[in-house]
Design a protein around this nucleic acid. Structure first.
Lengths: 108, 108
DNA sequence: CGTCATTACCTTGACAGTCTAGGTCATGAC
DNA sequence: GTCATGACCTAGACTGTCAAGGTAATGACG
């Protein structure tokens, strides 16, 4: 049931969204997205970590070392206020886009 | 009212879709997508033409020189049978993706 | 005690797709 | 005869994703 991975440009949005529910470490972010999407979306680590650094550098998220529930060291990321704004704006952009593409696809 | 351009990876789908309504030349494809999306989607020429060549090379579309309705020479592209299959499959992929992303965004 | 699967993080290099910013040529209006 | 427009095209930079690696710590198993 796995095949398509992601649409380029939506990873930021997805990460921001799941972090909106509270801090998570990288691995857990990927799992969460996979699960919430009913196994449709797959976040490769080679996409995930660079993306997290970019978002950290932009001040949208903040890392802190801690312990995973499996007892391993893990870096937990949490949303900053700036990240919340970004989430809202990316979400709006996605909605606009999705509707627009839907409009084109639905046209006779 | 114009700002976001496109989501990477959706251009093929959009082009295939509008060509499903009959042959169009490049310029007209861009205009059609822009209009159908209520001015949300903007197809830059620097994206459009390379994309058309890729799709031609893959056998999804076929070019033919003709005259635009403004009396200029124009290259009209039409869907091949292979292109129709591709359209169906990309459309299905888009639907899957859009639903999946919606699932994530809608999660508590 | 040694091995192995798992969890979790990280990096490198290649690649694909988009955008910026140019350019060409023909038509038709002024 | 000049200029705006329609239409096509391209080079180069950039960004984001992916494949394929690697590291290290934990805990299970024999």
């Amino acid at each position: 049931m796995d095949k398509p991975e992601l649409f380029a440009g939506t990873l930021d949005l997805l990460i921001l969204k799941v972090l909106g529910g509270g801090p998570l470490h990288g691995f857990a972010i990927a799992e969460r997205i996979h699960a919430l999407s009913r196994s449709v979306l797959i976040v490769e680590e080679g996409s995930l970590y660079p993306c997290l650094y970019r978002m950290d550098a932009k001040g949208w998220i903040e890392p802190e070392w801690g312990q995973s529930d499996k007892g391993r060291r893990a870096k937990f990321y949490s949303l900053t206020p700036l990240g919340r704004k970004q989430l809202a704006s990316e979400r709006a952009a996605w909605d606009r886009m999705a509707v627009a593409i839907g409009d084109v696809l639905r046209s006779s």
